[in-house]
Nucleic acid binder design. Structure first.
Lengths: 354, 354
DNA sequence: CTGTTAGCGCCTTCAC
DNA sequence: GTGAAGGCGCTAACAG
């Protein structure tokens, strides 16, 4: 039926162990022997049985990359970069060699699915797991995550965070690459303040996520430093990280607050929705109202006017996370690395009227 | 060290076989016994050993979803929808039950990586594989793909295409959901012709992909039907499916052809680049030049002006592919289903000047 | 450098 | 409805 390693061994006139050594390549084998084995592998079109090999070796070549929303380029860019470091270049033949199987798992932002995926990866004895994007701050979930990650680490799975703050009191995580969301948000709001804005609406993400909190905190730090902390809560609307939320929240801001001169959005996608709402309201950007986003996704520069935003080096961070997961790079001191954000000033922000 | 099924059996005072039956749920077990087993599973925090179980059962719970570009929402939307059908709702506890592990693999559009991923999934004895997006038409690659898919199907892996035309002479594929790219493209160009356009530039995708070819063919059919087939080649520029290609190709069209009154792009992302190029050239959309895209990705409605494009039901198709992969739905007659595309007329197209 | 020998942890007949 | 036993295909010590 299906070709096994023993078949290959028989055909190459060597022992199964030798075939295994050739295939795994972590053991010296005479060149002539290896050639014979490889020829047999080709002749029989043999493909290693992953489960069997994982069972025997007590580890698999699976690497999981968890993302909150696979349809969001924010995650796609990070995941793609991570995968490129993990999957290996291949040998151009389509025949799999020693590569890892880098796969991305879409949690949809649900804490339960995040845990489920981790359990599934634990079950597969995954070699590594990369968790991308902000975390949910619910204490129960955090505790469950810490416990689960500890178990994974115990079983030999490397855990890396990418764009996620470190878990307190946990040494299960090899490295945490955290974006400086707070600093980026602060710089962005400072930019608006310098332009002369005083009444700045904020369309935030879901309340319980670290990314949301950090960006909001940065914004408020800047406001407070400028002596503006009176009606912050009234000027903040929470929603999800999508276009519709940006649209709805901005409509609300515009209707109940005629005097907002600028809208800061949780991210670029939300900003796009905000722009649409502002236009539908009959106002111009940036003449009547300034708009700013966050992330600097590829489409942001093509918005009209081009979106002022905060650039996050998503691809670089993803690639580094991939390398860390593969053990190609040693983790930063303390296991934590803060990745700087860069303010990108474009056409969607300007001084307020009058 | 690590908890095994035998440990659970001992604690529940039953045989390993019984524990296995409870866990897999495909066999009658007395309720009281099951409760005892499940309690032991919880007490010991037992997680099934995937490789061992896959080895014994000769099949795994892994389902692979291949995409050409994970940073492109076109694929993200399909993959996310597919995953939602495969991953199962979960039981809300984060504890994995009978769910499949739905994972997405990013080929980056490379035929070699596509084959490599298939081999890797074959190695894992994947339960199913979903291939999304257009295929590369190189004969050698097509043959290799057909052979590989046949082997997968032979080994019991369900193969489903989503947004990809069926493979000729292959019964390895359970179902092929193909978008009507040709019809959509034809409708789009007909729309431009009705508006009065005659000199229409076409920014195509990479030459060897089915999606590119079908969309281009639809465009040319419409042109030909209108008696316009003279300088088609001169008005077509090939590039990749990204913003930069759209920008560069459109610049070229504008520089060498002062008289183009409309630009049709390979997809929405390319169209965005085209818009930028047109603006940078000092021209207005749609007054000076009309622009149209394809796919109707979420951001297209927020472009300024909103993009005329062709809507593809990506989420629905992805979900159906997921259901087919899971055997939740029976395949269409003949294994082939053509999915209609819908013309979305918006502000980026208008009658040419004069 | 290569062959031999034991399992890895689970599923699955087969009996009871 | 439950237990006992064998084997899934491979790797990892050991010998040689």
């Amino acid at each position: 039926m299906t070709v096994t390693l023993a078949d290959v061994a028989a055909r190459a006139r060597v022992s199964p162990a030798t075939v295994s050594r050739v295939l795994n390549g972590n053991y010296p084998v005479a060149t002539s022997t290896r050639d014979r084995v490889l020829r047999a592998v080709n002749d029989l079109d043999y493909v290693l049985n992953g489960p069997a090999s994982s069972l025997a070796a007590a580890t698999s070549d699976l690497v999981g990359i968890l993302v909150n929303d696979i349809a969001d380029p924010f995650f796609g860019i990070m995941a793609g970069a991570a995968q490129s470091q993990i999957g290996g270049p291949g040998d151009g033949s389509g025949r799999a060699g020693g590569e890892k199987l880098a796969v991305v798992c879409n949690t949809g932002g649900s804490p339960e699915r995040e845990l489920t995926y981790l359990t599934l990866l634990q079950r597969q004895r995954a070699a590594a797991v990369v968790l991308t994007g902000g975390a949910v701050e619910d204490p129960a979930h955090q505790a469950a995550m810490a416990a689960k990650l500890a178990k994974l680490a115990d079983a030999g799975t490397t855990v890396v965070f990418c764009g996620r703050p470190p878990l307190p009191d946990s040494d299960a995580v090899l490295a945490a690459l955290a974006f400086d969301n707070r600093g980026g948000a602060r710089a962005l709001t400072e930019h608006l303040l310098e332009l002369g804005h005083r009444r700045i609406g904020y369309v935030a993400g879901p309340l319980e996520r670290t990314t949301t909190r950090h960006r909001l905190e940065g914004h408020r730090e800047a406001m407070r430093a400028a002596g503006l902390d009176g009606d912050q809560d009234r000027l903040t609307v929470h929603g999800w990280y999508d276009r519709a939320s940006g649209y709805d929240a901005t409509r609300e801001l515009l209707s109940r607050e005629g005097e907002v001169t600028a809208v800061v959005a949780a991210n670029d996608t939300v900003a796009l929705g905000a722009c649409a709402a502002i236009r539908d309201h009959g106002l111009r950007i940036p003449e009547d109202i300034s708009v700013a986003g966050f992330d600097d996704l590829p489409f942001s520069v093509d918005a009209v006017p081009a979106l002022t935003t905060v650039r996050l080096p998503l691809a670089e961070a993803g690639a580094q996370a991939g390398r860390l997961a593969m053990g190609k790079e040693k983790p930063p001191a303390g296991g934590i690395l803060t990745i700087e954000a860069e303010l990108m000033v474009r056409g969607s922000t300007a001084a307020p009227r009058g």
